Amino acid sequence: MKRIAVYCGSATPADPRYVELGTMVGKTLAERGIGVVYGGGRLGLMGAVAYGALEAGGEVIGVIPEALVGSEVANRDCTELHVVPGMHERKKAFTDLSDGFLTIPGGVGTMDELWEAVSWAQLGYHAKPVGLLNAFGFYDGLIAFNRTMIEVGFIRPAHQGIIIHENELDLLLDRMRAHEPHTPIFAMKESDL
């Protein structure tokens, strides 16, 4: 994995552990020689990830929609900053520029990015690993919900392992690196669906 798209919040929670986590994620990726592709802002966890990676000498590629350049305070310190027309182009750029996806804590936008990466993997638009860092138990409920979708039958057996989740970043990155692509829906026959 040469580059990973990091999905995370642009907000700064009151609990300082979250910003510290963002900084650590950016630093760890840089130390592993993995470039960061992210939302292009300098606030919240988003900014912390970029800061951590840049401080450790890593590559940071920001992708930000034109309408958010001012409100998210675009990070001009990035190795590259791509300003795109809108959110669809932003998420496509994340997919095109990265070799995998890593979600750390965030809000609605982060969930949108995560579920699109999962959906696109399930369909076959990409065959890249989708990692979820469950730091501080933040995603316990989401992991339980995903398990419910599996148990009820809304996620096919071939796609049950798309979300790779761990509580520790190093273990998660190792599992993402070892990722084996699954059979996507586009390659299935009607009887498999």
Rank of each mutant, 00 (worst) to 15 (best):
A5P: 07
A5I: 12
A5M: 10
Y7K: 00
Y7G: 00
C8T: 09
C8Y: 10
S10R: 07
A11V: 11
A11G: 13
A11H: 12
T12W: 00
P13G: 06
P13R: 04
P13D: 03
P13M: 04
P13N: 05
D15N: 15
R17A: 14
Y18H: 11
Y18S: 05
V19M: 03
V19W: 00
G22Y: 07
V25M: 13
G26F: 09
T28P: 03
T28R: 15
T28M: 10
T28Y: 06
L29I: 07
L29G: 02
L29A: 05
A30P: 02
A30Q: 03
A30M: 05
A30Y: 05
E31S: 02
E31G: 05
E31H: 04
R32D: 07
G33D: 09
G33M: 10
G33K: 09
I34M: 11
G35K: 13
V36Y: 01
V37Y: 06
V37S: 05
V37A: 10
V37W: 09
Y38F: 12
G39T: 02
G40C: 05
G41F: 11
G44Q: 00
G44F: 00
L45G: 08
A48V: 10
A48N: 08
A50S: 12
A50P: 00
A50V: 07
G52D: 07
A53D: 00
L54P: 00
E55H: 13
E55N: 14
A56D: 08
A56V: 09
A56I: 10
G57Q: 09
G58T: 06
G58C: 02
E59I: 13
V60K: 02
V60M: 01
I61G: 04
I61W: 04
G62Q: 01
G62A: 08
V63R: 00
P65D: 01
E66T: 14
A67R: 15
L68D: 01
L68K: 00
V69I: 10
G70P: 01
S71W: 13
E72F: 06
V73K: 15
A74D: 13
A74M: 11
R76W: 14
R76K: 15
D77F: 03
C78W: 02
E80S: 09
E80A: 12
L81Q: 09
L81N: 10
H82K: 15
H82D: 08
H82M: 15
H82F: 15
V83Y: 03
V83N: 08
V84F: 10
V84W: 10
V84I: 13
P85A: 05
H88G: 12
E89H: 14
R90W: 03
R90I: 01
A93F: 13
A93D: 11
A93P: 04
F94G: 07
F94L: 07
